[in-house]
Each structure stands twice: as structure tokens, then as C-alpha cells.
Amino acid sequence: MSTTTKLDVPDSATAKASPAKPRRGLRGSPTLTFWLFTGPFLIGLAIFVYAPILWSLWLSFFEARFTVTPDKFVGFDNYVYMLTNEDFVGSLGTFTVFAAFIVPTTWALSLGLALLVNRLRFMRAFFRSVFFLPTAVSYVAASLIWKMSIFSGVRFGLMNTVLGWFGVENIAWLIDPNPPWYWLVIVTARLWLQSGFYMILFIAALQNIPEELYEAAAIDGAKSGWQTFWYITLPQLRATSTAVILLLLVAAYQAFDEFFNLLSKTTWGRPPLVELYYKALGESQDYGAGSAGALILTVLICAVTLLQGKIMGFGRGDESK
């Protein structure tokens, strides 16, 4: 700011030519500037996020079948229905198991990849791109590849072909839930899609760790390898790890695409969003019950996020480093 104030002093001749002139407009009204930059985003947020949430809240107290403008008030009936619905409650359980597994696995895999790529002397950019590339693939496209070619149940599916060399019978990966092979399909698809992105975050964090720390540790007698990793690298990555875990949890909560595309007409392996889609918003068209379920889910997500922030200290900034 101080530099622009100084620029006001020169005479009008230089001011005319000065490219800094338009900045005066911005500086003139910080409030206007604030709204100008945040406005479009806030409008979008209000229209596409807050309005639907409020509408959901309203809908959840009505019997809204085949309409989003209902008139029959039913109080908490929809909440009671959703909370006593085995499928919905079961889906919350499914999600918990899924999140408990996928979050640490993705975290570990992307950290592992980051450490490997970071140690590379040559071709680093190549490997970084190769591992990052799947992030650009759509979940739907990846699901179809996993479903139709890799984990197809017929004898010419990739996995079944490989197993066939060892004389193993064909496995209907996605169709037969005993044993639950479908988890293998879902987890591998998700790992492939997500790890690259978090790997990039870890690489950035790794490059931010000052070299002096390692040098000091070496002088103090820390062995390179496990010891250095455990006492230097990992603590230095704490802020990034926390962010990654939070992002992974959010991603797990949002799980929809690959479940929806990989599993059809099942009553298992449905995260809450898929369950809500099928039971309420899809074919049954029960918007009241669906909204009630969505709000229950929203409350749960808020609670978990706050709890996680409290435990892991996300957003506390530098002190957590």
C-alpha cells in the first residue's frame, strides 16, 4: 500500500502515463474490491450450496413424493424413517469401514510414492507425471475400465486371464459378494485415481524440509533411512499429512461415482450418498426422506470434521509444525 501512496505525489504528467493509475480505483474502496473478488464465488455458494441445504431442511419435514414443493407436513417422520432404515444405517457402517481403510492406505501409498520419486536422480519429472496422470482420469471412465476389462467376470477379463494361468477358476469380482471381492476392485480403482495427487502434495512438502536438518541429524549420529524418516521427515510433514488426511476423509465421504458405476442392484457396498440416491432421490422419488438422510449425513460430516480438527490440529498453522 505504501508504494502506491508514494505514487500519488508526482505531478499529473507522469501520473497520466503511470500504469499504476488504475490501482487507485481498487485502493479507493477496499469494500468494493472485497465484494468484487469474493462476490461471484459467494453468490455461487449461496445459490448452489446454501439454498439447496435450506430447501432440504424444509423438505425433510414434509411428505415430498414426486415433488419438491410439498404441502403435507409430517414433522420428524422422515428422520425416524431414515434412522430406523437398516439400509441407510448400514450404509453409514459401510462408509466407516471404507474410510477407515482407504484413508490410511492412500496416505501411506502417496507418501511412499513421494519418497521414492523425491529420491530419484534422473527421470524425476517423468515419474512424477506418470504417477500424477491418473488424477486427470474421470472416476466414471476408470470405473468402466476396471469393470469391463480388468475385473470383468468372464474368462477373458484381465485378472481372470492371469488367474487362469495358475488354474484358478473365474471369479465374478463384482457380482458375487461372498467373498467380498468387490472391495478389491473399488479400493484399487480409488488408489490408482487418488494417490498421484496426494503424492504431489507430499513431494512439495518434502522439498520444503531444510537440508540443514538432515545434516544436523547426520552429525548427531542419526542413521539415514528409517531413523531419519521417523524423527525428521515424518514430523516435518505433519501439517501436510493433516491436510491430506482431511482431504481424504472428505473424498471418502463424497464417494459415489465408482460405487455407483461398479455395483448395480446390490444392497451392500453402498456409501451413504449412493444409498440416498437410490432410496430417495432416484427411482423412489421420496425427497422428504432423502433430505432427512442428507441432513443427518451433513451433521455427521460436520461433527467428524470438527473432531478431527481438534485432534490433529488442522488450521492451527505454524505452531503445529
Binding site: I175, D176, P177, N178, K265, T266, T267, W268, Y278, E283, S284, Q285, D286
Partner: peptide
């Protein structure tokens, strides 16, 4: 209706594909 259709599809999922 479609909702009933889905409910009966769940019977197949639960008792035929699952045990």
C-alpha cells in the same frame, strides 16, 4: 411401482446373491 420393483430387486440381491 418402481419403488416396489426396487424393493423386490433387493430380495434377489439379499437372498440369491448374498446368503
Amino acid at each position: 411401482t418402481q419403488a416396489m420393483r426396487t424393493a423386490f430387486e433387493d430380495v434377489f440381491a439379499n437372498s440369491v446373491r448374498k446368503n
